[in-house]
């Protein structure tokens, strides 16, 4: 083993393929996006260097409304962490305690993660349809006509209407991560706690959750960065509309690049998203300290 580690060529050979992929697919495009973001470019004709004008417009232009998209994304992140993750955790704890049909429920909760988001989006489009959607029909049957909305078509409701399925879809994903974490907690510890007189609630809160900390940290990072780059569900349901009500940074980026051929401006949004994702990932890592084993 040591011999191989000292062999420079071997090190090179083993690292090279992955390094090429990593640099070619991640590092180079990021650098190129950063370069584009300093230019006025329509994707075809010559680029024109304009310095940080794109970034200035990003934060001042009212018609683009970028700051609001960041707020929307942050709201989604907050909802993910404080609503989606607790639900996932509760489900993981419940299911892992060995109930009847443990595998069945796990599969059921995980199904939304497996199905293509576009398909789920189509399903939710039907649910929200103002005329025949199950949501409005149910409200009408209950005599709550005044609660009926054009869920995706009104500025007040559109944002929450697109966030609901986004949150719902990934409950199963986080649940699976946490379930695996709970299962890996040694039964000895739990048994010892029980012998000492701990009840189920105490076992969960005092033993399992603290031991789950590394998993929870990962889940929080996934949830927050996932929220910052959320795209597919929103694109399918509203495309960011009506009037930017449900716009998030990535839908804005797509409409700028492909709708208006503003590659430079779109790249500036891309760079901002990358920056925000890194920033929050590092902040979360700092905040949730875990002991290294």
């Amino acid at each position: 083993m040591d011999k191989i580690r000292k062999n420079k060529l071997a090190i090179f050979l083993f690292i090279f393929p992955a390094a090429v992929l990593f640099i070619g697919i991640i590092i180079v495009p990021i650098i190129m996006s950063a370069i584009y973001s300093f230019h006025d470019w329509d994707g075809i004709t010559d680029m024109k260097f304009i310095g940080v004008k794109n970034y200035i417009e990003l934060f001042t232009s009212e018609s683009a409304g970028f700051p609001k998209t960041i707020l929307n994304a942050l709201l989604l992140a907050i909802l993910s962490v404080f609503i989606q993750l607790p639900i996932s955790l509760a489900l993981a704890l419940r299911i892992s305690r060995g109930i009847k049909g443990e595998r069945f429920f796990m599969t059921v909760f995980f199904i939304p993660v497996l199905i293509s988001t576009v398909v789920i989006g189509q399903l939710w489009l039907k649910i929200y349809n103002p005329r025949y959607g199950i949501l409005n029909v149910a409200l009408e049957t209950l005599g709550l006509d005044s609660w009926c909305h054009t869920w995706l078509g009104e500025q007040e409701t559109a944002l929450m209407a697109v966030f609901m399925p986004t949150l719902w879809q990934y409950v199963g994903y986080h649940m699976l991560l946490m379930y695996a974490g709970v299962k890996s907690v040694s039964p000895d510890v739990i048994e010892a706690a029980k012998i000492d007189g701990a009840n189920g609630w105490q076992v969960s809160t005092r033993i399992i959750i603290p031991l789950l900390k590394p998993v929870i940290k990962i889940c929080v990072i996934f949830a927050v960065t996932g929220s910052l780059k959320a795209f597919d569900m929103i694109y399918v349901l509203t495309g960011g509309g009506p009037d930017h009500a449900s716009e998030v940074p990535s839908t804005l980026m797509v409409s700028m690049i492909f709708g208006q051929s503003r590659y430079g401006f779109g790249s500036a949004i891309a760079v901002s998203i990358i920056f925000l994702c890194f920033f929050f990932a590092i902040v979360i890592k700092r905040c949730i300290k875990t002991e290294e084993y």
């Binding site: 929200y128 103002p130 869920w151 078509g153």
Partner: peptide
């Protein structure tokens, strides 16, 4: 049509 802002 009702909800035109949300209909494709």
């Amino acid at each position: 049509i009702e909800g035109a802002a949300g209909l494709s």
